[in-house]
């Protein structure tokens, strides 16, 4: 059976949940082979084993992390060449898509971005993408080279299966071109103690309707164990950091539950949350478009509703 390469997304060896999802998709297509770039494979090993990585390629040269994008492309291109995989899966996201794009050109391969499903078809893999703000479902395949696919977070429930995780250490010689865009500083985002926005099962988001006060949104999020998101209007007003923006120019989220409060539901916002499984809206305007896609809506003032709901949820938890 052919290998399916999965680029491991990690911070200092702590593997992100999307990687477990990719490994789950990879198992449908062949033998999952994780590609770990970094020095901390020790930290990652347990995770990769428990989500079914049969092999782990390790590239530990620190230089690979000193420059933007291209070193990772060259590492993957080397492995594609060496192992002729059935596909390469990469987590969607700014960097993931850029890596995939250049890898596709370097290896003469078809590229599919932002897949929400990947299946093994008779004539090769079949992906599903959700386009035009989630209004249209597109299925597609690759006709040339090794399929390079980026997959959106939360597209599948990760399956815990034991993998052999046989380690194979390799190294590559970076081209001069790969050393031209130097990362001179890296500031990891401070943890809020809440789940990571794109990985969270529940997201509570606030918009212009918060009037700048996110306290009730945060309190409700904490009662539900949720991540906090924001609309662009709230971000542009300086009420919440851009890292939490949901939508076309922010993060795409696909949680089990998305609670939109004080958000009208503009198309660019929908683009980032429309594939959420269940959508709840709290808005004082009955005519707000967000109610068109909400499974459950409450018309009223978000602060009083969220504050009361938070008390009730906390009371239930005892």
């Amino acid at each position: 059976m052919s290998e399916v390469l999965v680029l491991v997304d990690h911070v200092g060896g702590t593997v992100r949940k999307t990687t477990a999802e990719l490994l789950t998709f990879a198992r449908r297509l062949g033998e999952p082979a994780a590609v770990f770039i970094g020095a901390e494979v020790e930290v990652a090993r347990g995770f990769l084993t428990s989500y079914g990585a049969e092999k782990v390629y390790v590239l530990a040269d620190p230089e690979l992390s000193d420059f933007l994008v291209l070193p990772k492309v060259e590492a993957l291109a080397h492995l594609v060449e060496a192992s002729s995989p059935a596909a390469v899966l990469i987590a969607s996201g700014g960097e993931g898509k850029e890596i995939a794009a250049r890898l596709a050109l370097k290896t003469g391969s078809g590229l599919i971005t932002d897949a929400v499903d990947v299946q093994a078809g008779e004539a090769g893999l079949v992906t599903t993408q959700s386009v035009f703000a989630g209004n249209v479902a597109v299925t597609a395949g690759v006709t040339h080279g090794v399929p390079i696919v980026t997959v959106k977070p939360n597209s599948v429930t990760p399956q815990a299966v034991d993998g052999a995780a046989v380690e194979e250490t390799t190294s590559i010689v970076l081209s001069e071109a790969a050393k031209t865009a130097r990362i001179v500083e890296r500031r990891p985002r401070e943890s809020t103690g809440r789940p990571e926005l794109t990985e969270a099962a529940i997201v509570v988001a606030g918009g212009r309707g918060t009037g700048g006060d996110f306290a009730s949104v945060e309190a409700f999020a904490d009662a539900l164990g949720a991540a906090v998101g924001a609309s662009r209007a709230a971000v542009d007003a300086g009420w919440y950091p851009h890292a939490y923006q949901v939508g076309q120019t922010g993060k795409t989220v696909s949680p089990e539950l998305y609670v939109a409060t004080g958000i009208s539901g503009a198309i660019q916002h929908r683009a980032g949350m429309q594939t959420s499984k269940t959508i709840v809206a709290v808005n004082k305007d009955r005519e707000a478009p967000i109610f068109e896609l909400a499974d459950f809506g409450v018309v009223g003032d978000l602060h009083s509703i969220l504050t009361a709901a938070t008390e009730q949820v906390n009371a239930r938890k005892g």
Binding site: A104, G108, S109, G110, L111, I112, V126, S130, V131, G134, N135, V136, A137, V138, T139, A140, G141, V142, T143, H144, G145, Q274, I279, E292, L293, D295
Partner: peptide, 14 residues
């Protein structure tokens, strides 16, 4: 193109 769209279907509106 190196990719091929097999189908494009409008999702029933939520």
């Amino acid at each position: 193109a190196w990719t091929r769209v097999v189908s494009a279907e409008e999702r029933p509106p939520r």
